[in-house]
Amino acid sequence: MADHAQAEHKEHNLAIFRGRLKFKNNVQKIWGVLIFLSLVTCVEVALGYIKPDFLNGHFLALKYLNWIFIILTLVKAYYITWDFMHMRDEVSGLRRAVVWTAVFLIIYLIALLLVEGDYIYEIYKNAAVSSDF
């Protein structure tokens, strides 16, 4: 049992950014990922505080700014899962079983509910009865 557990964790994949950044050991990689996640969070907070006017345009019913927030969040989620939860070191079967299932169901659920929410907004907006009273 002991040997088994040891053998499983002997190797960590120490490269991030598709192999562009390599670390000497796992502890160093952890700090590297922390720095990266902190930077991304700082960018998010700065953008959220300043809210630059030129990011107020819309793409697919969302502001550019909100798209940036969502993409940065997904980036953070990737590195938390891949490096803190060591998904990078798992075999592809486990990775796909967890990630593909989640990604498919989450996109499905979100698409359904947001379209429905927008539909109800239109109904309210065009209703004969005002809600402003």
């Binding site: 659920l109 979100i110 359904l112 509910l113 947001l114 429905e116 929410g117 927008d118 109800i120 309210y124």
Partner: peptide, 9 residues
């Protein structure tokens, strides 16, 4: 997603 639904509503 429910939050998003209400927000879009």
């Amino acid at each position: 997603a429910a939050y998003g639904f209400s927000r879009f509503k």
